[in-house]
């Protein structure tokens, strides 16, 4: 705004106030839907989970094969999965394998190694769901955290946010790169089936069922064989609790799990976001404050210029007087 060009004072002042009112109304209109979208917590009491008993897993990796089959991914013959050489390298879930089994040394019995299946943990309060710029991730009431390819813009913020470092991305694809992660066979579950990995497991290392019952079952197992199990259910409270739960005989950080606090990953960032935006009151107040400041400083400037004009006028009159007086004196 060029101050030299203010045509009529009263007019511009009215415009000014009108403008602020319009923006305020617009902002207030926005706030309702935004706040509504943020406040959803739809977890079902009898949501499903899966309990992995790492003391039972034999590392046959049939779950990897079944998972790939269920998600229509290219996969070699099931026999090739018996090759235990892959265990020499620690692997993470990837674009080609949404779940992987790793092998760790067993301090209690060197002949029987510990095998650990890993995949998305399906957090109760997932960081990816909170972080995703377009809401492409969602936590379904029954447990699975699913990703919607139609929304995703490929920003990879989910990967920055995930405390378990699970989602992976197609770095080699120029068009329509995907985000990959276990979806807990959400489609199969809808049809009444159990997840493919649970279905195929020959030693029943994975138990599928309502999460609350799984926790009870896990506690029973620990009570029955305290010499085998650590008295700890990984996932019960990690990152605010996860749908997938683990039992083990060896400290979890030594078998590929990150040490996490009980706080849900999105907790702090969401309270900051909601604090800054609290029904758009803080930004709207800032807008009003700045508007007030701008108006006041403008008024002040107008008064200043008026005063300086008055002073000029007075000086002019005085000068004329002086000249007059001098003329008379002569």
């Amino acid at each position: 705004m060029n101050p030299e060009e203010v045509n009529s004072k009263s007019n511009s002042r009215r415009d000014f106030l009108k403008g602020i009112a319009t923006v305020g109304a617009g902002v207030a209109g926005l706030s309702y839907s935004a706040a509504y979208a943020g406040a959803e917590n739809i977890l079902s009491e009898d949501r499903f989970g899966a309990l992995v008993d790492t003391t039972l897993c034999v590392g046959c990796r049939h779950c990897e094969w079944a998972c790939a089959k269920a998600h229509k991914m290219p996969v070699p013959e099931i026999e090739s999965f018996n090759n235990r050489k892959v265990f020499q390298e620690f692997r993470r879930p990837s674009n080609s394998s949404l779940t992987v089994v790793n092998e760790f040394e067993n301090p209690k019995n060197r002949l029987i190694p510990i095998n650990v299946k890993q995949q998305c943990m399906h957090c109760d309060r997932p960081a990816c769901v909170s972080a995703c710029i377009v809401g492409a991730f969602s936590k379904t009431a029954k447990g699975p955290v699913v990703w919607d390819s139609d929304k995703c813009i490929g920003c990879r913020y989910c990967m920055v946010a995930c405390p378990f470092q699970v989602p992976t991305f197609d770095y080699e694809k120029a068009i329509q790169p995907m985000i990959y992660k276990c979806d807990f066979c959400a489609e199969r579950q809808k049809g009444g089936d159990i997840p493919a990995c649970v279905d195929i497991c020959p030693v029943e290392a994975i138990t599928f069922g309502p999460r609350s019952e799984l926790i009870r079952e896990a506690r029973n197992r620990i009570k029955r064989k305290p010499e085998v199990y650590l008295d700890y259910i990984y996932g019960e409270y990690e990152a605010g609790g996860t749908s997938w739960l683990y039992l083990a005989s060896k400290i979890f950080t030594e078998i590929g799990f990150p040490k996490l606090s009980q706080k849900a990953a999105p907790g702090v960032s969401e309270s900051i976001q909601h604090g800054i935006f609290a029904y758009f009151i803080p930004p709207a107040s800032l807008y009003a404050l700045l508007g007030g400041l701008m108006w006041m400083s403008k008024m002040k400037k107008e008064i200043d210029t008026e005063i300086s004009k008055e002073i000029e006028e007075e000086e002019r009159i005085e000068k004329i007087h002086r000249i007059d007086m001098e003329g008379k004196n002569e």
Binding site: A34, I133, V134, I153, G154, C155, R156, Q176
Partner: peptide, 29 residues
């Protein structure tokens, strides 16, 4: 910079119609 960094640059307009009020990135965008 954002356009070249996101995997699906042709969907850069998505945040305009697909909102996630919990996401700091959404607000920045």
């Amino acid at each position: 910079g954002v356009f070249v960094d996101i995997g699906r640059y042709y969907y850069i307009w998505h945040p305009l119609v697909m909102w996630n009020g919990n996401s700091a990135l959404f607000e920045v965008g």
